[in-house]
């Protein structure tokens, strides 16, 4: 299978805002490869470098050294983002717009034709189960509905690669289940999904492969069963890989 997301020796440093901390290394030579059609889980504790990796992939943060590409195109080129969809964590969409208007706005940026836009919006609203609220302003939406609008906007261009940053964060169990269902449906449609999450059980359920990152370094990469290995669950494997010792934990 072809790699549609690739990073090579990716290193990101930034000047710390805190006094006298100097340069902080967020990523330390990250090599990653996500293949077409797979659901890839990107795991790591808080501050491990997951969001920084995504920010580099989306062109938000320039890498200090190394390279990152999407579909073989350098991520610094806007065209690299033509075939991706991105759902950031905890986003509050324009509350004065309706879901339909929001999707139409993003469709315009992708240059979709009017007829195609109408069709796509109807499909997506059905997929995320928001047809009934399509003409209501987003400010009246619950958190789960807002997250589903976010998912719909990430899919507006029918992307080949979806980058989801903690898509179930802050959702109730029902909301989480709905998002999980949507990811599985996308997988069924042959889409590539690259997502970060803290919900290891969820990752275990939907992912084909996972990568575990800790303190900016890739600690493990492989199939879910490969990583779990002799451990009882992915959670236990994850804790061991990042060097967490339950007996010394506070």
């Amino acid at each position: 299978m072809t790699a549609i997301l690739q990073t090579q020796k990716l290193r990101v440093e930034y000047r710390s805002r805190e006094m006298r901390q100097g340069i902080k290394v967020a990523l330390l030579g990250l090599d990653l490869e996500v293949r077409a059609g797979e659901v890839f889980g990107f795991l790591g504790p808080n501050g491990a470098g997951k969001t920084t990796t995504m920010n580099v992939l989306l062109g938000f943060v320039p890498p200090t050294s190394g390279a990152a590409s999407l579909f073989g195109i350098d991520v610094r080129q806007p065209i690299a983002r033509q075939r991706i969809g991105y759902l950031p964590e905890l986003t509050y969409y324009y509350k004065f717009l309706t879901a339909e208007e929001l999707l139409r706005f993003y469709a315009k940026i992708f240059g979709l034709a009017r007829g195609e836009t109408d069709k796509r919006i109807a499909e997506l609203l059905k997929l995320v189960e928001l047809e009934h609220a399509a003409k209501r302003p987003i400010k009246s939406y619950s958190k789960g509905m807002q997250q589903r609008v976010g998912l719909a906007q990430a899919l507006i261009n029918n992307p080949d690669l979806l980058i989801l940053d903690e898509p179930t964060s802050g959702l109730d169990p029902l909301g989480r289940m709905k998002v999980r269902e949507i990811i599985q449906r996308l997988k069924h449609d042959g889409k590539t999904v690259f997502f970060s999450s803290h919900e290891l059980g969820e990752v275990e359920t939907v992912c084909d492969r996972v990568a575990i990152i800790h303190q900016g370094e890739l600690k493990a990469i492989g199939g879910v069963h490969e990583i779990t290995g002799k451990h009882a669950s992915l959670e236990k494997a994850f804790l061991e890989i990042i060097g967490f010792n339950s007996s010394t934990a506070p």
């Binding site: 991105y86 950031p88 993003y106 940026i109």
Partner: peptide, 14 residues
């Protein structure tokens, strides 16, 4: 603040 800048710039918008 609302983080809408992220999905916006993740699209082919310079």
């Amino acid at each position: 603040e609302n983080r809408t800048l992220l999905p916006l710039l993740a699209k082919p918008l310079t």
